[in-house]
């Protein structure tokens, strides 16, 4: 069943702060096999002009996607998560995420479309640090595949 268009533009409350830790960044960089010293060595990061180790570009998705759970699991929206696949992902950075950041995410439903029985949901996550500075925006397109005919 097509999703309710009246949810377009709905913004959900900001998430509680997520504190970015050096060791979490290291764990993520190791998991993607990326040896860039800016992710693990504070001195190497400082030599590049960063105040502490920075996170790989896609690291913040773990935070924004968890925040998007408010949308995905909103019972009023009624998305069938068991049929959802990740369609597109985009990030626009004001600055890199770095260790010590306390990040909140504000999720907004940007668009709802129905195409060949599939529900397509665009969620924007605005990420801010503790001082209110905008750090990064993440756009996530989710596609809920059409249910098979009963």
């Amino acid at each position: 069943m097509a999703l309710d268009q009246s949810f377009v533009g709905r913004t959900y409350p900001p998430t509680p702060p997520y504190e970015v830790g050096r060791e979490k960044i290291r764990e993520f960089a190791e998991a993607v096999g990326d040896p860039n010293p800016a992710y693990v060595d504070p001195e190497a990061a400082k030599a590049l002009g960063h105040s502490d180790v920075i996170a790989p570009p896609t690291f913040v998705f773990s935070i924004t996607f968890k925040a998007a759970g408010q949308v995905i699991h909103d019972p009023q929206l009624g998305l069938d998560y068991s049929r959802v696949v990740h369609g597109d992902q985009k990030f626009a950075y004001v600055r890199p995420v770095r260790a010590g950041d306390r990040l909140t995410v504000t999720s907004t439903i940007e668009a709802i479309k129905s195409l060949a029985g599939n529900d397509i949901l665009d969620v924007r996550g605005e990420v801010h640090d503790e001082s209110g500075e905008h750090v990064v925006t993440a756009w996530t397109k989710l596609v809920a595949r059409a249910a098979e005919e009963a």
């Binding site: 800016a38 590049l48 920075i54 790989p56 992902q89 985009k90 990030f91 950075y93 890199p96 756009w139």
Partner: peptide, 9 residues
């Protein structure tokens, strides 16, 4: 410098 990435999609 990974911090040089401004956008990625």
């Amino acid at each position: 410098d990974p911090g040089a990435v401004v956008e990625y999609g």
